[in-house]
Simulated scan of single mutants.
Amino acid sequence: MDELEFRRRIMSDPKAKDPELLDAAKESDNNAKYLEDVLALDARIEQAMKVEVPDDLADRILFHQPDSNVVKVKFGKRALSLAASIAFAFGLLVGQVNWGNVVVSPAQASLSDTAMEHVNNEMGFIDPLDENVSKAQINAKLLPFAYQLGQNFPYHVYYLNHCGFGESNAMHMVFQGEKGKVTLFLTGLPSDQSKTFDKDGFSGLVEPLGEASFILVGEQGEDFQKIGENIRKILNPS
């Protein structure tokens, strides 16, 4: 199990007792530290949700109407404190957790925005990797999407995995383009037509593929139309 998959599963259920997760934590100091941090944060959030209620609160509300305003003020302050605690805990979560497993809903963003969000969030983790991925490995990851490579992938592949993508899943690949590294997402989400994009320092292409789509993201100046055409030629329905 790679580190990214470990983090995703821990974020989904920090208290999981899956032997595979426990072994991954034992084998890696980084995994063990990440699990410890997430469990500590989970405990903070649980503690923030606990609000002390005065023992005589019900009596004061029912029988001491003149004091009702005082009670409401105190209760209101407690509610604000609770909200602040939760906001603080959430802020810690945003700052400490790798959000590769958190995705943007298609109702809020286009396929290109979702893809760029993934690339931006996971760049630091994936950039140093070179898994030298083979055709057989790519075809194994393509199986859930009912596509296979008809011939060898024409670019050197550094990284390959599955990931969450909006309301669907995707095959996530990083390979060498002509200008630099290019990220490909093949997802079950459909797109109406082929379109290029250029935003926030990224460029790319959204390409329909039957009932699915693939999205390319990379450096400005990359010939994504050419890359997309080369990939489409070798992707065959299985």
Results as ranks from 00 to 15, higher is better:
218 G>M: 01
207 E>T: 07
195 K>R: 14
136 A>G: 08
199 K>Y: 13
219 E>M: 05
229 E>F: 14
151 Q>N: 15
125 F>L: 11
145 F>H: 03
50 K>H: 11
105 S>W: 11
49 M>R: 14
73 V>K: 15
34 Y>A: 05
107 A>G: 09
69 N>P: 12
152 N>P: 05
114 T>W: 06
33 K>W: 09
227 I>T: 05
163 C>S: 14
153 F>G: 02
71 V>P: 05
99 W>P: 08
91 G>V: 04
200 D>N: 08
155 Y>I: 02
58 A>V: 13
173 M>G: 02
75 F>N: 12
175 F>H: 03
80 L>I: 12
136 A>K: 10
113 D>F: 11
11 M>R: 13
20 E>V: 10
47 Q>N: 12
71 V>T: 03
133 V>I: 08
37 D>H: 09
96 Q>Y: 11
95 G>R: 09
109 A>F: 10
94 V>K: 12
209 L>K: 07
123 M>T: 12
129 L>M: 06
103 V>Y: 11
66 P>N: 04
22 L>R: 01
217 V>A: 00
57 L>K: 07
134 S>E: 07
58 A>S: 12
134 S>N: 01
161 N>Y: 05
109 A>V: 08
149 L>P: 04
37 D>Q: 13
121 N>Q: 12
238 S>G: 10
55 D>P: 08
51 V>W: 08
171 M>Y: 03
144 P>N: 07
106 P>K: 08
152 N>E: 11
153 F>H: 04
123 M>D: 15
124 G>I: 05
232 R>S: 13
185 F>S: 00
187 T>P: 00
83 A>L: 14
132 N>K: 14
53 V>E: 01
85 S>T: 07
221 G>D: 04
211 E>M: 13
31 N>S: 07
97 V>I: 11
147 Y>V: 05
47 Q>Y: 09
18 D>P: 05
225 Q>R: 14
120 N>G: 14
81 S>G: 14
204 G>P: 04
104 V>T: 15
115 A>E: 02
75 F>W: 13
204 G>Q: 03
183 T>C: 06
188 G>A: 10
50 K>M: 13
153 F>Y: 04
128 P>F: 05
192 D>I: 07
66 P>C: 00
84 A>M: 09
147 Y>H: 08
47 Q>A: 14
119 V>R: 02
4 L>R: 03
128 P>H: 01
44 R>T: 13
82 L>W: 11
126 I>Q: 06
